[in-house]
Structure formats: C-alpha cells, structure tokens
C-alpha cells in the first residue's frame, strides 16, 4: 500500500469507529458517562488545536480559553438573537448551527490574528504573558457586557450539541492537525520552533507561519467554544479564566509537546482521571484535581520533560517497534 492509501485506510477506520461510537455505543451509556465523553471530545479539540501553536510552532500561548470564549459567545449570540427571527426548518436549523459554529471560529480566528501579531516580536515568557493578558481582557469585557449576560452569564442557549456534532468536529479537527504534519506548512512551523533565524535564512516566512498558526489554532478553539456553549446551554465568563487555559497546557505538555496523538491520549486520560478520583474528592471535600495537575506537571518537567510521546506520533513508535523486531 502506498502512503496515501494507507492514510485513507486509517481514516476510514477512524470514521467507522466514530460512527459506531456516536450511534451504537454512546446512546447505551448513562448520562454521567456521556457527559465525561463529551468533555473528552471538547478537550481533544482544545488540545490538538493548541498543539499547533505550542507544539509545532514552539510559541507559548496561555490564552486558549479566551479564544474558546470568543467563539462560544459569538456562536451563542447568533443562535439566540438571529435564529428565532429566521423561522427555519429543523434541517435549516442544523445548517444554521453549523454556520454559527464556523462564524464563532472565524471571529476567534480574527482575535488570534490580533494576538499573533505581537508574537512576531515577543518570545517565550513575554508571549505567554501577553496571551494570558488577552484571555483576561476578554473575560473582563464579557463580564461587563450586559447584552450577553455580563457576570450573570449567558442563559437560554439551546442544546444543539449532541454526540454527533462532537464526534464529527473532533474527527475533523484531528484530521487536519495530523495532516498538517509532513507538509510545507507543518515543516515551516517546526522550523520556526527549532530555530527562527535559520528558518528565515532557509526562506521560511516566520511571520506568516506564526500568525497562521495562531489564526488556525484560535479558529478551532472558537468552534469548540460554540460546541461547548450549545452543550451546556449556559456560558459564564468565569469558566474561561486562565485556569482553563492551564488545563489545556497541562494536557499537551503531558502528551508530549508537538505530538497530536500524544495530546489526544492525554486529553482523554486527564478528563477521566479527575472523575475517577471524584470519590476521594468527596471524602476530603477539596478539589485536589488542580493540585494533582500541578504536581504531575512539575514532576514531568523534572523527570520526563518530553511528555508521553515526545514530539513524535504513535506511528513513529510503532514503526520503531516493528523495525526492532525484524
């Protein structure tokens, strides 16, 4: 099989599993497990999209929750204020919702462009602080705009998001992130991560590469925000504080910065882990999820700084394993 055929094959299986999951497996679960799986899907999208900036391109963004908020509020405002006036059929509503999700992604992407611009001058810690500042500014703005609920939060969002939406969006998001690897776009990002001066000297336009990564990443964060809003039916600015951004960072660091499959695995693991620990939490009456996160983060940095999979995908280890056997 050629490389492309193999890729088609892999993705057909992925789609098949996705359909199997959303049509057969998911409806059979009880509500509690369904909830966990939905959150896992959201986290996978957040993690893989942040991988573009923090993993591939080697920039450090701490504002992912901010982009998610922008997308969520944009999308929810559209379905609350615009949708009822159109009087659409159920199918029409579905299309409108898809368009609203994309609109949320686009507005978020525009914000990503605006935040990406300073990244041309700023490195590492400074960029981290600016993106964190962006997230906080977004939060303060949403807190103060009454039309979208202000500090009370935005209520009355319809629960459009079901498992089909989550599965489809997660698959699309992962597909794109995997496919960027091994293209001139993906390699350009990696070059920027490795050495900006050398990348420029080899003809990589580091400016557009970085800004592009920001725009694309924030687009997907925005779409995820829209899905999130229409799953819970409620948005509150405090949900999108920097703690949310930190959570995503923890996921991609543990998965291995720059590894899409690593972030997917870590997203699933870190969604389930706190839930598994919930009984313990109820006994001690403290939310030690974050303590655990932070300790794991520190220990990983000290002992296994490259995370679970390093910069590589699972397929890399699979190949290595197969070669070592022959």
């Amino acid at each position: 099989m050629s490389v492309t055929q193999k890729s088609y094959f892999t993705w057909s299986i992925a789609i098949f599993l996705g359909v199997l999951f959303s049509e057969v497996l998911y409806p059979g679960l009880n509500g509690y497990y369904q909830g966990i799986l939905m959150v896992a899907g959201v986290n996978i999208m957040l993690a893989t999209s942040l991988t573009l900036i923090n993993g591939f391109t080697g920039q450090f963004s701490l504002g992912h929750a901010g982009f998610m908020a922008v997308g969520g509020y944009t999308c929810a405002s559209l379905t609350i204020y615009l949708l009822p006036k159109l009087g659409l059929s159920p199918l029409g509503i579905g299309f409108f919702y898809a368009a609203a999700l994309i609109a949320g992604g686009i507005v978020s992407g525009i914000c990503g462009y605006l935040v990406g611009l300073p990244s041309l001058r700023l490195k590492g810690d400074y960029l981290a602080i600016v993106t964190l500042g962006f997230g906080e500014i977004i939060r303060v703005i949403f807190l103060n705009v009454d039309a979208i609920g202000g500090a009370r939060g935005l209520t009355g969002i319809q629960n459009f998001t079901n498992q089909r939406w989550i599965v489809a969006c997660t698959l699309i998001c992962c597909f794109i992130m995997f496919r960027i690897l091994g293209t001139n776009q993906g390699r350009g990002m990696q070059a920027v991560r490795e050495d900006e001066v050398a990348a420029e000297a080899m003809g990589v336009n580091t400016t557009s590469t970085k800004v592009g990564a920001f725009v694309m990443s924030s687009f997907f964060a925005g779409v995820t925000g829209g899905l999130y809003a229409h799953y819970y039916g409620y948005l509150n600015p405090s949900t999108f504080g920097f703690m949310k951004s930190f959570e995503v960072i923890v996921i991609i660091v543990l998965g291995g910065l720059g590894s899409v499959s690593g972030s997917i695995l870590a997203a699933i693991a870190l969604t389930i882990l706190p839930e598994a620990l919930r009984p313990l939490q109820e006994i001690t009456k403290v939310d030690f999820r974050m303590i655990l996160y932070s300790l794991v983060l520190i220990l990983f940095m000290l002992l296994k700084p490259n995370g679970l999979l390093g910069r590589h995908e699972i397929s890399y280890y699979w190949k290595k394993f197969r070669r070592s056997k022959t």
Partner: peptide, 12 residues
C-alpha cells in the same frame, strides 16, 4: 519553555 511550564506548575 520547560522552566516556564514548571513555574506555571509551581504556581498552580
């Protein structure tokens, strides 16, 4: 970047 992540971890 590792030091930065550690610092975030310590803070949390």
């Amino acid at each position: 970047i590792n030091v930065l992540i550690t610092a975030v971890g310590v803070s949390l």
